[in-house]
């Protein structure tokens, strides 16, 4: 591989975004039953925490799965960390630098938290000389150090989610994909989780798919709104909040951010966003 090889990471421009989607489309099924989950999505994401917002069925999970290299695009190009996910060798390299926490995931009930995270360290090809330290650090970061030797089957839903996050972090990923990560967390856990993501987002590209707009406001540098398989808006969460403040009041029990999100989703102009 030479530096002129477009697949070479060295050839990737220094300014290349960590995630680059070009005219990405994903269709399920064939013929008349075919359904378009993602439709010509163009998206560049760089270091920082990004929130993926959208109603149910908008295509958020499909997008996360494509970025996690689990699902192949029907058409278009997906580049992560300067590599094309279609190439097997690149895909393996991308996965080494990827952390992924799906919306629903199972675990091995007889494993302890340490064993579970350690197992994923092995699966993610963390060099064995630093695997033990990486496991301890990941467990500590998610606040499960005192439960490291507890079996997975004994964990509560929130703890299980944190153990899942620990496995996503164990390889110190450059791209972290979290699908509904705060579901099941109590308020205190959510606060520490937000703190953790802010810390991780300092040098990692984090994409969070969520329904909870407060999470986006609290931790994300950018909100990406998806509707019917298309990215309809990219903006700073504060802009959404501003839009919400301009179109309603708190009397109906909604926050300005929620109103702004709903309005943006239905095509209202955002004060200064990057609409697509």
């Amino acid at each position: 591989m030479t530096s002129s090889d477009p697949r070479s990471p060295a050839s990737a421009a220094v300014d290349d975004p960590t995630i680059r989607l070009s005219r990405l489309s994903v269709r399920y099924g064939r013929g008349r039953s075919a359904r378009t989950a993602l439709d010509s999505v163009d998206l560049d994401l760089n270091t920082g925490v990004h929130g993926l917002l959208g109603p149910n069925g908008a295509g958020k999970t499909t997008l996360m799965r494509v970025l996690a290299t689990i699902l192949s695009a029907t058409s278009g190009e997906v580049r992560l960390l300067g590599r094309d996910v279609r190439h097997e060798r690149d895909r393996r390299q991308i996965r080494r630098q990827l952390g992924y926490l799906p919306q629903a995931f199972g675990s091995y009930p007889r494993f302890t938290v340490r064993e579970f995270v350690g197992y994923f360290a092995w699966l993610k090809e963390v060099p064995s000389r630093r695997a033990a330290a990486a496991v301890d650090r990941a467990i500590e970061r998610v606040g499960l150090a005192d439960r490291a030797d507890t079996r997975m089957k004994s964990l509560s839903g929130g703890m299980l989610r944190r153990a899942g996050l620990a496995q996503a972090l164990v390889n110190d990923p450059d791209v972290l994909l979290l699908d509904e990560p705060t579901v099941g967390l109590d308020p205190e856990q959510r606060i520490s989780f937000r703190r953790l993501l802010r810390e991780v987002g300092a040098d990692t590209t984090v994409l969070i798919s969520t329904h909870i707009v407060d999470d986006v406001a609290a931790i994300c540098h950018q909100a990406v709104l998806v509707r019917e398989g298309r990215v309809v808006l990219r903006t700073h969460p504060s802009q959404l909040e501003r839009l919400g403040e301009s179109i309603g009041s708190t009397q109906d029990g909604t926050s300005a951010l929620e109103r702004g999100y709903t309005a943006a989703l239905h095509g209202r102009d955002v004060p200064s966003g990057v609409a697509q």
């Binding site: 799906p102 995931f105 199972g106 091995y108 993610k124």
Partner: peptide
């Protein structure tokens, strides 16, 4: 056990 989704994304 539903671990397939996690495993699918490992190298």
């Amino acid at each position: 056990l539903g671990v397939g989704e996690l495993l699918a994304a490992v190298p």
